[in-house]
């Protein structure tokens, strides 16, 4: 019964979020374009599926994943737990004593990205537009790796307390340099994958991890140092997606060369 009322309230707030979009889309369709929408019934059912799906998804996250994820983020950043893994107590903690935090950040970053609905949407579209050249799974795994690296580096930054803009600016420099060497087709998609990765699933869990960490590490302020993980998570996928395209290109080129060489040998 409690779940049902929770579902209802989440459903209502999802509808409220979608309402501006529906109003804009159908308003322009009716007032500016003035043409009927093809397969209107199908499209409307599609919207209903999206709303119901998103509401169920959020309800499930609220009931199952967020409580345990947030609890674990707290437990893993708890000084008592971190001290427990260190043999000598009483000493000041070194940044390397937080190794479980980095591993957790990596694992939770990668696994939540795989389940991110907006990334699935973009991957489907990219696969369709590229005529299958960009695999749905290749893109999703490349993005997941990027988020994982980004978030574990971000937790390391919170522990060590280095200023965030050093990391972000060096990341930007890497992105700009990579842009010149990556295949032209992938660049816009790679830029997009930065913003796409962080929505419904990743943000709450990652925010809990950052705030938990910043409030337990001595000398950090939850308000100032707790933020910034999302920025890391949206920077590194650009690098890994371009890297993925570069590696596939290199492999394809090597295969082609090998095949040509084999052909030449045969002809001789």
């Amino acid at each position: 019964m409690e779940t049902l009322s929770q579902l209802l309230s989440i459903l209502l707030s999802t509808i409220r979020d979608v309402l501006p979009i529906i109003a804009i889309v159908f308003g322009f369709q009716l007032l500016v374009i003035r043409r009927p929408i093809p397969h209107l019934k199908r499209v409307l059912f599609g919207f209903i599926y999206v709303i119901v799906g998103l509401a169920l998804f959020l309800l499930g996250l609220d009931k199952a994943l967020f409580p345990i994820g947030e609890l674990m983020a707290q437990q893993l950043t708890d000084p008592a737990f971190i001290r427990g893994t260190v043999a000598t107590t009483g000493e000041a903690l070194h940044w390397s004593d937080y190794y479980w935090v980095y591993i957790f950040a990596f694992a939770i970053g990668a696994s939540t990205t795989i389940a991110e609905p907006s990334l699935i949407a973009v991957a489907i579209k990219a696969n369709e537009v590229s005529g299958g050249a960009i695999g749905v799974w290749g893109l999703r795994l490349a993005v997941a790796l990027g988020v994982a690296i980004g978030i574990s580096l971000g937790t390391w930054r919170i522990v060590t307390g280095y200023p965030i803009h050093w990391f972000i600016i060096s990341g930007y420099i890497v992105v700009v340099i990579q842009t010149f060497f990556a295949p032209k087709l992938i660049v816009p998609l790679a830029y997009d994958s930065g913003g796409v990765t962080t929505s419904t699933v990743t943000v709450p869990l990652v925010a809990a991890l950052g705030l938990g960490l910043a409030s337990t590490v001595p000398g950090r302020s939850a308000l100032i140092d707790g933020f910034g993980l999302i920025a890391f998570a949206s920077l590194f996928p650009m690098i890994t997606v371009m890297g993925y395209a570069q590696i596939t290109e290199i492999v394809a080129r090597r295969d082609r060369r090998r095949r040509e060489r084999a052909k030449m040998v045969k002809q001789e």
Partner: peptide, 8 residues
């Protein structure tokens, strides 16, 4: 969600 995405 994904079902509705491709429909709507």
């Amino acid at each position: 969600f994904i079902y509705g995405l491709e429909m709507g």
